[in-house]
């Protein structure tokens, strides 16, 4: 079963079994502007929920991406090294950042589903 969840910091996590793929939302990439670089963590690094997992850079800003749940980094998206623009063009797909092995699936319940996130975005406008 695959589920999509969002954080208030605009990360998304797509869950597939005990693995979650993490990226940033379309709203986030639009706010950041042209992405020029993504600094990804080492595979194997264990992350607590809320830890800095990656840094995404535009020309004039750098923003931390936080781990949405506890877990361990299982894979990172090497393609972003050559084409950081994928975060802009396909943030929910090819622009993913990393995959993590989720420590406790129950934590996902604390995150927003798509409808709740849309409502959250609406509240920001």
């Amino acid at each position: 079963m695959s589920a999509l969840r969002f954080t208030k910091d605009h990360e998304w996590i797509r869950v597939d079994g005990d693995t979650g793929t993490v990226g940033i939302s379309d709203y986030a990439q639009e706010q950041l502007g042209d992405i020029v670089f993504v600094d990804l963590p080492d595979v194997g690094k264990s992350l607590a929920k809320g830890d800095e997992a990656a840094v995404v850079e535009s020309v004039k800003a750098a923003s931390e991406i936080y781990a949405p749940v506890n877990g361990e980094v299982a894979e990172v998206n090497q393609a972003l090294a050559d084409e950081p623009a994928k975060v802009n063009t396909d943030p929910m797909g090819e622009g993913w950042f990393l995959k993590m092995k989720i420590a406790d699936a129950a934590e996902l319940d604390e995150l927003m589903d798509e409808a709740a996130y849309d409502a959250y975005l609406e509240s920001l406008r």
Partner: peptide
């Protein structure tokens, strides 16, 4: 590559 620098990253 100014994102390395203090005017953007401040304490980082």
């Amino acid at each position: 590559l100014s994102t390395r620098e203090q005017h953007i990253r401040r304490e980082k």
